[in-house]
């Protein structure tokens, strides 16, 4: 398991409008492409590679499925997990159900954690 690498995915996609668009339209291919050519680079450096991290099968699947509940449960950072999926779903939810409806849906899907200690986000 690599919480860091999951967070790196969320961080790099959230800050890049082109990657975000691809993650919306074709998550499976975007995740595969990210694992090949974005994840293995040091941040902010197009030249230097790093071999430290890899996604597990479960992490890969959660990212492909836009499964923010599974990502929360794996200990992905709460801010990155929220902001990326708000970037994807806020607008369509707003149009159909009104302001903050996606934020509330996000919370409702995590209600089973409400009285529990949340999974650790420590990396």
């Amino acid at each position: 398991m690599s919480k860091y690498y999951v967070n790196k995915f969320l961080f790099t996609v959230d800050r890049d409008p082109q990657l975000l668009k691809r993650y919306i339209e074709d998550p499976r291919n975007l995740v595969a492409n990210w694992e090949q050519s974005i994840g293995p680079k040091l941040l902010g450096n197009e030249v230097e590679a790093t071999v430290v991290h890899a996604l597990t099968k479960a992490e890969r699947q959660a990212l492909v499925d836009h499964d923010f509940v599974a990502l929360f449960e794996m200990g992905a950072h709460f801010f990155l997990n929220l902001t990326l999926f708000v970037g994807i779903y806020d607008e369509p939810y707003m149009t159909r159900y009104g302001p903050l409806s996606f934020h509330r849906e996000f919370a409702s899907k995590l209600q089973h954690w409400r009285s529990l200690d949340y999974p650790s986000i420590t990396t």
Binding site: F79, S108, Y118
Partner: peptide, 10 residues
């Protein structure tokens, strides 16, 4: 404050 958890936006 809660962000990205079950108690957000209550």
């Amino acid at each position: 404050l809660e962000l990205g958890g079950p108690r957000q936006f209550m």
